[in-house]
């Protein structure tokens, strides 16, 4: 398997960053190359860092989920508001995946981290909770293999490919 011969796109620090309660934005596209979008509520990275799993609120992400099912294309933006540090990860094998025990705890933990990050910046806690809310029964799990990752922090290095 040539895929496994390559080092993972994400290094350990990237994996910690994307699971640290940063904001998550997920996009895909349809057959007509129209992009779809949804905010994510959590992220889990496999131990070997070759698989990224995202959680989205399903009712607000129907077009995105249809597009992922149809085209498997995905781009995810992770951003830390206090530092503006932003990375984007892209993949081409995205699919709806099964939830695992502990996923809801991950979502809850990352939500609390996000609140701790955003409230000191002046965002009202009820607004943050509402924006990143997902009913447990509505959480949909999407998993993909990162093909590439890019720095996206505003400034001269935005768009540079990250070396793992």
């Amino acid at each position: 398997m040539t895929q496994d011969a390559r080092p993972p796109v994400l290094d350990a620090e990237h994996a910690a960053f994307v699971q640290g309660g940063v904001t998550i934005s997920v996009s895909s596209r349809d057959a007509g190359l129209r992009a779809s979008i949804s905010r994510g509520v959590g992220c889990r990275v496999s131990a070997d860092r070759r698989r990224v799993t995202l959680f989205v609120a399903g009712t607000g992400a129907q077009k995105l989920l249809r597009d992922i099912a149809a085209t498997k294309a995905i781009a995810v933006c992770f951003s830390q508001p206090s530092t503006h540090r932003t990375i984007q990860i892209k993949g081409s094998d995205a699919r709806i995946a099964a939830a695992e025990p502990g996923d809801l705890a991950i979502i809850e933990r990352q939500l609390e981290a996000r609140i701790a990050e955003l409230v000191p910046l002046g965002y009202a806690e009820p607004v943050v909770r509402a924006v990143f809310h997902a009913d447990p029964g509505d959480v949909v799990t999407v998993a993909f293999t990162p093909d590439a990752a890019f720095a996206q922090t505003p400034g001269p290095n935005a768009g540079r490919r990250l070396a793992a």
């Binding site: 996009s27 596209r29 779809s36 979008i37 781009a75 933006c77 984007q88 892209k90």
Partner: peptide, 21 residues
Amino acid sequence: AIPSLVATCAPDGTPNVTYVS
């Protein structure tokens, strides 16, 4: 007050998503 998101798609079908101020 809250950053917006914009998603686009390259001609080769690769999506892209970004925050806009």
